[in-house]
Write a protein that binds this DNA or RNA. Structure first.
Lengths: 220, 220
DNA sequence: GTCTATACGGCGATAGAC
DNA sequence: GTCTATCGCCGTATAGAC
């Protein structure tokens, strides 16, 4: 363990630099916005030179993709853990909705950043596009799995419910910037909850699929 | 009519320049993306100098806001006209959904541009913010009025339905870039239609508000 | 009031030495 | 892997012609 330290040393230092760049970039992108943040500033804060940043991430866009990917992974893991600790299907939905609401309230800038990856330029670099696709897919799959385990059964359009939830998440994060005084997040996310319940009830009705024990498809 | 041409001449020429800049910017922003378009290029295409652009729009952000405002106004007017020509409430909903779908398919880049206004920097300039707020409000109000006249009555949460529709619009436009092969726009917007119908039926049920003649709140 | 000419500092990105 | 040096372009600003 201590007899062969050499070949890993540089790798370790490289990983540490990568990490510091990522932390600095996350903070600066979040507070100032993507376009308004200079790579020079990121490097100064990370204690690194600009070319080192380019070696690690290839471009400013690549750095953004890495930042967003990490924040999404953390969010999915965090909410999935909280949801899996909750027993009743109805409470699970509440925890899920609450997770979305808190993501907007506490880290809305990161949600907006994830949109920036796509919108900055018309033809996104293929790496950035792939990164965004991974993020979307991972999040959607997690939501679908969550609903499946909450319902105890699958339904044909659960993926659409996942997209509905993500659409509401983005809409809330965007609106928060445009008109902070009239967002009405509570009312907005309560509406999301109602739509989900109504639509699941509809899907159950149409598919003839009986839901084992959960009574989520009833309005409170 | 020809004896006092002077005071208007300059104004007219100024308006013409403004118009040419707007057209050039709309086209370039749409094809290349906002960040990837240089003002130099816009000016060359408009046959104008850069400082003239600066005089008319104040900044690149201001130019973007003007571009987006115009496209939104056109869209709202266009769809409102088509909707008002349709008789049955059920068909009106179809025309509305179709308008959204076509906006994404034919002018998705402009939808994405409208998001760019908000996302480019963390603290948007107050003029750009106001412009975006106007756009959101105008579109939401138009949707609410459309539903009111289709239903023949008002409902407490029609504004939430408008936000739902806009959220789906943005989500579709964003997804179109990330994963063009799996967007399933038809299925996605059919889901939107179902959600609207389900939610209106719910609102009618809860509010005890009778809907005069329209039978929109029934699933096809 | 509308526009031309010109300049400036900073940006993202690259090449090559160590 | 990291640093130094440098590039070309960007958005912005101002002075002054018409």
């Amino acid at each position: 363990m201590e007899s062969a330290p050499r070949p890993d040393r540089r790798k370790l230092k490289g990983a540490a630099s990568r990490e510091r760049i990522l932390v600095a970039a996350t903070e600066l992108f979040s507070t100032r916005g993507y376009a308004a943040t200079g790579l020079q500033e990121v490097c100064r804060r990370a204690g690194i030179e600009k070319a080192a940043l380019y070696w690690h991430f290839g471009s400013k866009e690549g750095l953004l993709a890495a930042v967003v990917d990490r924040m999404d992974a953390e969010f999915v893991e965090h909410v999935a853990k909280r949801v899996s600790k909750t027993a009743s299907p109805d409470d699970r939905l509440d925890v899920f909705i609450d997770g979305l609401k808190r993501l907007v309230a506490e880290r809305g800038h990161l949600v907006r950043l994830s949109l920036s990856v796509v919108l900055e330029r018309s033809s996104v670099s293929s790496e950035a596009r792939d990164a965004m696709q991974n993020i979307f897919d991972r999040t959607r799959d997690a939501v679908v799995r969550g609903f499946e385990s909450a319902l105890g059964a699958s339904l044909p359009d659960l993926d659409l419910i996942a997209r509905l939830a993500l659409a509401y998440l983005d809409e809330a994060a965007v609106r928060d910037v445009v008109d902070p005084e009239h967002v009405e997040h509570d009312r907005f996310f309560a509406h999301l909850r109602r739509l989900i319940v109504l639509d699941i009830a509809h899907q159950v009705r149409v598919s003839g699929q009986p839901i084992p024990e959960g009574r989520m498809p009833t309005l409170g």
